[in-house]
């Protein structure tokens, strides 16, 4: 029973990592930019989710608006920060992205205060007994939402013309333009989708912990960057697998070697070991 419970805990954590990291790897695949400020959109989503849910009384509306607004902010970041730097060496955009993330943290601190924020009445906290396993409703909703969103993303990418055009642009933007695909539209679409997914992840984490802080994006940010390297930079499938493996490993590690290493230390030790053995990641993209 403990095994299944830990496995489910791992899935909750891993699927949340996955919807954060998938956006990051999509953006890397398209622009070859490590979008560190993605973590800022995760935090923005969490704040918006809490504020809008508290204001409207509707969690669904809070999630939807948080995703929409964060998606638009993501597109604005592309337009105002990355687009002018595309002809410059990649480290220029990386430095700008780190600066932007630090700036976003400070803005959250100024706007929402330094001490964190919670739902006025935390939703979905009822305990559900599922085959003898005690789970909070919000944990079930988190996994279901993450799996549904990743499923929709996979369906769009694999089964629709737009998704095929998107993947072709990642492969060769110049040639895809020769067949009528607008690479700029694809970039906006990727930033919107990636940022909206990060925002949903932020709201889900806020639901699970009932606390939103300006610095909450830092650890998921480091882990997501490591996950996309582990999964093979730009490789969406590899990123999903790496996220789930990391989530499950953390859940088991916390119980079995928790006295030795804490949750985050287990994750980073695992990532360091794997990257020492295979620096190109488990699933090298190209």
């Amino acid at each position: 029973m403990l095994f299944i419970e830990l496995f489910i805990q791992g899935l909750i954590q891993g699927s949340t990592y996955a919807i954060i990291a998938v956006g990051l790897t999509l953006i890397y695949g398209l622009l070859r930019v490590l979008h560190v400020a993605h973590a800022g959109l995760f935090t923005l989503g969490a704040y918006l989710g809490v504020v809008l849910t508290n204001q409207t009384g509707s969690l669904s509306l809070g999630i939807l608006l948080a995703a929409l607004i964060s998606g638009i902010v993501g597109m604005a970041i592309y337009r105002l920060v990355y687009e002018p730097m595309l002809s410059k060496p990649p480290y220029v955009a990386l430095i700008a992205s780190i600066g932007l993330y630090i700036g976003m943290e400070e803005i959250f601190r100024l706007v929402f205060g330094p001490f964190g924020m919670s739902f006025s009445s935390a939703p979905l906290q009822d305990i559900v007994v599922f085959f003898g396993i005690h789970l909070r409703t919000c944990q079930i909703i988190t996994v279901v939402t993450n799996v549904v969103l990743l499923g929709i993303l996979a369906w769009i990418a694999q089964r629709t013309r737009i998704g095929t055009g998107w993947r072709a642009t990642v492969d060769d933007p110049q040639m895809s333009a020769c067949f009528g695909i607008n690479p700029i539209k694809v970039r906006y679409m990727v930033f919107f989708t990636g940022s909206a997914l990060a925002a949903v992840a932020g709201v889900m984490v806020a639901l699970l912990t009932n606390i939103v802080e300006p610095t909450m994006g830092a650890v998921p940010s480091y882990k997501s960057l490591a996950i996309i390297v582990l999964g093979g930079l730009g490789n969406v499938f590899g990123t999903l697998i790496a996220s789930l493996v990391l989530g499950i490993l953390e859940a088991f590690g916390t119980i079995y070697i928790g006295d030795l290493l804490d949750r985050d230390a287990i994750a980073f030790a695992f990532l360091i070991i794997v990257l020492m053995i295979k620096p190109t990641g488990i699933f090298t993209s190209r």
């Binding site: 095929t164 055009g165 993947r167 072709a168 067949f179 009528g180 695909i181």
Partner: peptide, 9 residues
């Protein structure tokens, strides 16, 4: 899929 991209327009 390469055909689909070719016929995108």
């Amino acid at each position: 899929e390469n055909f689909i991209i070719g016929g995108y327009i």
